[in-house]
Amino acid sequence: MSGIFERVAALGVVPVIAIEDVAHAVPLADALLEGGLGIAEITFRTKAAAEVIAQLSAERPELLTGAGTLLSPEQVTAAAQAGATFGLAPGFDPAVVSAAAAAGLPFAPGVMTPSDISLATAQGCRLMKFFPAVPAGGPSMLKNISAPFAHLGLKFVPTGGVTLATVADWLALPEIAAVGGTWIARTEDMRNGDWKGIATRARAAVDRVKEIRG
């Protein structure tokens, strides 16, 4: 994995965030940092995503800011130009993987089957998002579909249905670099200005990872 993804793995949890208002960017970052979780995946599910990433990159460079839900080469370019340090997608699209490589953006495509893993591996990917993690079969499913590729040293970020209560189930697998979590900073939390709640959930996630990993 790239040095950036090694930093992601060291943190163990990636908050997956759909942020609607650029004005929420800095308060969000400060809440996450207060909770000791210096990372955010800003998804391109909202129109504000690129501007939010640009603001975080400029004003809170200590936060490891990535771009999620990258579905096209154009979005990859926008994310890279905004200052994203890594990118992820819910599925595997060779054009998107190629665009990320051209932009020098560490990138993890989404996979759900052995065929997906084969295709992503052939294109040089070594970290992949397992999505949707729980509906796709949970830790047991990922353990079994990744087993034939174990000798390649692949790592995964399961996202979709993961909760604080199930983090241990995922991190017990050696294939897991980190988990993606939507529970830490929800859209409604930001709308309501619940920055203290976000900081509390971030701290709980950090503490849980430390407890699991010793």
Rank of each mutant, 00 (worst) to 15 (best):
F149L: 02
D189W: 12
R186C: 06
A178R: 04
A40C: 08
G124E: 10
A120S: 14
A133M: 12
A40D: 10
L171G: 09
L28D: 07
D194Q: 15
R7S: 07
A108N: 03
R213T: 01
Q123F: 12
A202F: 00
E41S: 01
A49W: 05
K155H: 12
V16G: 08
G35W: 07
G35L: 08
H151K: 09
S57N: 06
G3A: 14
Q81L: 14
F131K: 03
V22C: 12
A205E: 13
T69R: 00
A202Q: 12
L33G: 09
L71D: 00
M1R: 05
A101Q: 03
V157G: 07
T69A: 04
G12V: 08
M128R: 07
C125R: 07
G83P: 14
I17H: 04
Q81P: 07
G153Q: 06
G36K: 14
F44K: 00
V179K: 01
G110H: 09
G66W: 11
V134I: 13
T163D: 15
E188N: 15
M190T: 01
E74A: 13
P61C: 02
S115C: 06
E51M: 01
P90M: 01
A102M: 12
P15Q: 04
D93K: 15
A204T: 03
R126E: 09
I53D: 03
T200C: 11
I212Y: 13
P139D: 05
L64I: 11
F156I: 00
M1G: 14
L28A: 04
L71E: 02
A48Q: 05
G36I: 10
A168I: 08
G153D: 11
A50H: 03
I53F: 02
E51C: 01
P139E: 02
V111E: 15
P148L: 10
L28W: 04
L127C: 14
A172P: 05
E51R: 11
E175N: 08
P106M: 03
D116M: 05
L70A: 04
R191L: 13
A99E: 00
V8Q: 08
R60T: 02
E20V: 02
E74G: 14
A40N: 09
Q55I: 08
P135G: 10
G35Q: 15
A99V: 11
R186V: 03
F5K: 03
R186S: 03
R45S: 02
T166G: 04
A108L: 07
K155Y: 10
A168K: 15
D21C: 11
L11A: 01
P114R: 00
S146N: 04
V26N: 08
V14K: 00
A54H: 10
R186Y: 13
G110K: 00
A31P: 07
A23T: 09
V162G: 05
V8I: 15
R201T: 13
E20S: 10
V162P: 02
I212N: 00
S57T: 09
D169C: 05
E6M: 11
C125K: 11
G110Q: 06
A165T: 10
A120I: 10
A103W: 07
F92R: 09
A101C: 05
V179F: 11
